[in-house]
Each structure stands twice: as C-alpha cells, then as structure tokens.
Design a protein around this nucleic acid. Structure first.
Length: 593
RNA sequence: GCUACUGUAGCUCAGCCGGUAGAGCAGCUGAUUCGUAAUCAGCAGGUCGGGUGUUCGAGUCACCUCAGUAGCUCCA
C-alpha cells in the first residue's frame, strides 16, 4: 500500500474536508486519539475497532464499567492534551505471527482475533502515537496536533455488539465528531439541535396529531387533527391509484392460522405474529396482506385478458417488533400498508415494475422528497430455488436499468419469498427509512396454486408483484411531518384558515366568513376568545395554520379581509372572493398534479 | 431483545448531602374589547411511571417491573 501520507498529500485540497480521503483520515486519527485517551485513563479497557463514519467517528471498547457522560468528559479532556502533545503517527508492519504475539503482549484479545482472521502471509500494519499503538490499515494524519482540541466532541456512548453479531458480547461504543475549525463543530452541533425540533414525535405532540399510551406500546392513536392529514393522504392515494388502473379490496385483519402455514409466514415469522385461540381454532393477526389477496384472486377463475390485474389494499397489519426497535410513527407494531398485489404474466413484469416505480416517483416528487433505491437479493432464509431467484432478480434489475436510475445493491436483504426494490426516505436527522417497495414473488402463486387461462385455453401460473408506495401510512406521516416541520401544505393542513376577530364587533362577520369558506370545503376555525389579537396570532402561528384572517372594524365596514400567512406574515387587505379563490386553489393543488 | 440513560401537575422543567413537593405555560374565574408572535389578577391542579425493600422518615437509596430515549441487533 502507498505510504498514507503520500496518498492524501497527492490529493487536491489535501488539507480540506472537501477531500474525502483527508476527511476520513482526520476522523480516523481522531478515533485513535479517543482510544489513546481512554487507555491512559483506564488501562484495563480493551480495544475493539474504531473507524471514521459519515459524520464523525467511533471506537468500540470492552470496559468493565459503564462509560458515563462524566467519563466522556474526562476522556475528551485527555484527548485535548494528546492534541497539544503533537504526537507523530508512525506506521510499522509485522508478519502475521509476530503481530499476533504483539497483540497478545498488549493484552488486546479483540485485536488478536482480528489479526487471526487475516491471511497467513499478510503483513500487518500498526500505527504508533507516543505510548499508544493500534492495529490499523491507515492512513493517518502526520501528528495528533492536526486534530484541533476545540473542534471535536464526544457525542454519546451506547452499546454495540462485537462484530455486529447479537450472539456476541455487547461492547460500549463511544461516538464523536471532529472538524478542522471550532466554528464548523458548532455549526454541526447547531444543525443537529435544529433538526431535533423537527422530530415528528415532538411536533406530533405539539400539534395534537397522534399519541402513544402505555397500554399499547407501538400502537399509535390518531387524534382528530392527525386523522385529517391521514384521510387527506388516503384521498390523494385513491385518486392516483384509480388513475393508474388499480382496484381496491379489503381483507380481514385476522385469519385462521392455517393460512399462514400455507403462505410460509408461520415458518419464517411466527415470533413476530400476534395470535389467539377462538372456539379452539388458532387465529393470527395478519403481518402482511398477501395471503388475503391470494384468496381473493383464487375465488374466481381468471382469463389472460384481465392481466395485469392490480389489486390494492389499505391493509392494517400487526407485527410484534422488538421493544428497542420502536420509534414514534417510524417503527410501530400496528400500521397501515398501502399495499397492492399485481397478478400478471412474466412478459408483463418489466412494464409493470416501471409503472410502479413511476407512480412512487410521482408521489415522492410531489412532496419534494429526496430518496434512494436499493435492490435486495436472496436472503439466507428463503423459499424457492436459486434459479427462480436469479430469474426474479434479473427482471427487477432489467427494469431498473431501463429506467436508468441509480441504485445500490443490498445482498441477502430480500424478502423470504422474493427479491425487492426498496425506496428509502430520510428523516430530519438523516436516518433513512424504507417506504416504497417493489417485490417480485414467484412463491405465493405456487403455494396458493393460482391460475389464469391463457389464449391457448390452458391453465398458467401468474407471477405477482407486491408493492407499496407510502410503505406505511404512519411512517409516511412521520416523514412528512419532519419534512414540513409540521407546516403541512394547505391541502393537508388540519386547519387551513383561522379567523381571528379583534373585538366582539367582528364576531358576526367572522362567523359569516367561516360558513362561506366551509361551504367551499375548507377547514376553518374561529378564535372567539377574549384575547388580544397578538395572542391569537401567536397561537395560530404555532399551530402552523397556513392562513389567518384578522378582522377588525375596518374589515367589517369595507367587507374585506386582512390576510396573514404563516410564512409570509401580513399580506394586507384583499377582497373576500380573492382570498377564497386563493385558498381553494391551494386546497385543490394536488388534483392538478 | 441487548447496553446505557431517562420517567416529578395537561405541556416544558426545578427540587443540594433522604425529613412528608415548586415554577412558567396551558386550564378555570374575574377584569380588560385591546389591530398582526404571549393583558392583568385570583383559583384550582401532582404523593413524584408502578411495586417491593432499607430507614424513625424516600421524589431523593436498593432491587424488581413498565414505558420512553440513543445506539446495536432486527425490520415479511
């Protein structure tokens, strides 16, 4: 390998975070300083691994004590000393055997394990900074003095399994981040603080959209205002899907457990299913809608002329997720999938996949989301043959290539019944959540013996595409809430217009306007409380109502309205008709897309 | 599920070494009818997530349990 220093010295902008090699190197050296500081203060702590990551770095330790925030502060202080000491980083290599012996002498069992896994003839590289030595491929900065003492921070300490394996020991991971300037660190930390204000769990509470109760962890309750957002989204969804040639069905939430044996869900997911016994029959709540849709398809004979048959279902599913995995509306135990099953012949596949991708794309672009796509291939636990999987994956890949979109491959991450294309959206903190998905399934048709009659008069087996666009309505509302920071576009806003009479003299006028706006199908509230206008405006602003009508003697007399928008402030006086047209247009906006 | 942390009025939070709970906002009552982000005054409201224990005495200590947060694992 090239000497690491040369590697990044050669680069353009070599001492800049614009240079990704330098950025990672800077963070990586930061992580070594973290380990060095930890070892100085607590020599009994064992070292695991410590890489640079997207927004900083971490180091995994095996410590016989909990790493508290006090300890983090002490370690941070020690790191500052190490920065001041300007210790040069020196690379040296050892043959594998000697490297193992060296790690054993250092009493670092995790390092021994790591080296043991390397090839026999490997030259193992280490980095030394002062008294501290760590197994490492590099590269690194030339001295610890480059990592500015006032531009890094240890942000948190959490658990993490050794080698990412839940059967192995849980270590303690210390996260940190570092920058070249103090201002950059502060800017980064501020950004995180700002992002936290957009958290849908916080906004959901403030705006009265939804809530959770101890009686049902992971089971969301929707409040009246949240229900408006949900219903409006579903209206939009139904319009789009009707236009795209889907028909809608609804299947039972709970079915005989025998069905889940037939579908293969029981073998793969029984631990995540809610079950009960009624009249000595075992029942399970559906964790997905497929089997129900299969039964619907099977209930009638089908002709090739009906295909592709697109059957949509807003299905409520229950999945017993691990308690630690729950996260607001993003990860729940009961949610509504905007599911659809498309039954077709193999030759329809490519066009249908493209059609679905276009539909999902239309929805995401409508909201201005950024997203990325992943192709997930055959997992270890799967049904069907390898040949079937290869063919299925090929169909998805072909469609993606024809669409000319970028995607990353996620090996082994497919559903147990087929490969899939996933659409991932970001939340306020940049964590991504799978929403849309397109899954190819050649298994359910077999298991349920689905058929259609071809032009040759013979029976044939259809293939199925499972797909969602929102993914989960709940999760999608979470993403939407964070995306808009609660300031939903007018067509989705729980309250679209808030009428604020300044005195009682404007009360009757206010009621009259409310009636007229409501007749136009708009959602309006009037604040008749005996409060000052500033107070009423403040509340309406905090509720993120798109439009406020401020009505005083002047407006009553002239028969006009003084309009204020949540984003643009005082818009001045306008005719009532003009205002009504303005809001009505925004309310209809999604229809014109 | 795992590791760590958190859990006090509707909301946001204070409560030092253990001695029987405080504030602001919201709510209610009264006064005020006042033009674009919070009018004034008064009243009411928690036994401190739940349980057990230690103690003369626990919101404050210990253990158990529930829920939440961060991350890990998982995510049909």
């Amino acid at each position: 390998m090239p000497a690491p220093k040369e590697e990044f010295f050669m680069e353009e902008n070599r001492y800049s975070f614009e240079n990704p090699v330098f950025k990672d190197t800077y963070r990586h050296t930061s992580s070594h300083m973290l380990a060095q500081a930890m070892k100085r203060l607590h020599p009994e702590v064992k070292l695991a691994i410590g890489p640079a990551i997207e927004h900083g770095f971490y180091y995994d330790f095996d410590a016989p004590f909990p790493i508290t925030s006090e300890i983090l502060e002490e370690v941070e202080t020690e790191m500052r000393k190490i920065s001041k000491e300007k210790l040069p980083l020196e690379r040296f290599t050892l043959p594998r055997d000697e490297a193992i012996r060296f790690a054993q002498e250092q009493e670092e069992p995790y390092k021994v394990e790591l080296i043991t896994d390397l090839p026999e003839d490997a030259e193992i590289s280490f980095y030394r900074q002062g008294e501290f030595v760590d197994l490492c491929a590099g590269p690194h900065l030339d001295t610890t003095g480059r990592v500015k003492g006032n531009a890094f921070k240890l942000t948190s300490a959490t658990g993490a399994y050794w080698r990412g394996d839940s059967s192995k020991k849980m270590l303690q991971r210390v996260y940190g981040t570092s920058f070249m300037k103090k201002e950059e660190l502060e800017e980064y930390l501020n950004k995180i603080e700002e992002a936290k204000k957009r958290d849908h769990r916080k906004i959901g509470k403030e705006l009265g959209l939804f809530l959770f109760q101890d009686e049902g962890p992971g089971f969301p309750f929707f409040l009246p205002k949240g229900m408006i957002v949900k219903n409006k989204l579903l209206e939009y969804w139904r319009e789009l899907h009707t236009k795209a040639g889907y028909s809608e069905i609804s299947t039972p939430i709970m079915l005989d457990q025998e069905l889940w044996h037939r579908s293969g869900h029981w073998d793969n997911y029984k631990n995540n299913m809610y079950s009960t016994v009624i009249d000595e029959v075992d029942y399970s709540l559906k964790p997905m809608n497929c089997p129900g849709a299969m039964l619907v398809y099977k209930s009638q004979p089908h002709s090739y002329k009906e295909l592709p048959l697109r059957m949509a279902e807003l299905g409520i599913v229950h999945r017993h997720e691990l308690s630690g995995a729950l996260h607001g509306l993003m990860r729940v135990r009961c949610f509504t999938q905007d599911d659809a099953h498309l039954f077709m012949r193999t030759e329809n596949l490519k066009d249908e996949i493209k059609g679905i991708a276009a539909l999902i794309n239309e929805i995401y672009e409508h909201f201005g989301f950024k997203y990325h796509m992943e192709l997930s291939t055959m997992p270890e636990k799967h049904i069907g043959t390898v040949e079937q999987w290869e063919a299925a994956t090929g169909h998805l890949q072909d469609a993606l290539e024809e669409l000319g979109v970028k995607y990353i491959v996620n090996p082994g991450d497919g559903a147990f019944y087929g490969p899939k294309i996933d659409f991932h959206l970001e939340d306020s903190l940049g964590r991504t959540w799978q929403c849309g998905t397109i899954q190819l399934d050649m298994q359910m048709p077999e298991r349920f013996e689905l058929e259609y009659v071809g032009s040759d008069g013979e029976k044939h087996r259809p293939v199925i595409l499972h797909r969602t666009a929102f993914g989960s309505i709940e999760r999608f509302i979470g993403i939407l809430t964070e995306h808009f920071a609660g300031a939903f576009p007018t067509w989705l806003a729980p309250v679209q217009v808030k009428i604020l009479p300044i005195t009682d003299r404007a009360a009757a006028y206010a009621d009259q306007l409310k009636e007229k706006l409501e007749a136009r199908g708009l959602r309006v509230e009037t604040d008749h409380r005996n409060e000052k206008i500033g107070y009423k405006i403040r509340e309406a602003q905090m509720e993120k109502v798109p439009y406020m009508l401020v009505l005083g003697d002047k407006e009553v007399e002239a028969g006009v309205v003084a309009v204020r928008s949540r984003s643009g402030g005082d818009l001045g006086v306008m005719d009532y008709e003009a205002f009504e047209a303005l809001v009505a247009e925004e309310n209809e906006k999604r229809l014109n897309k």
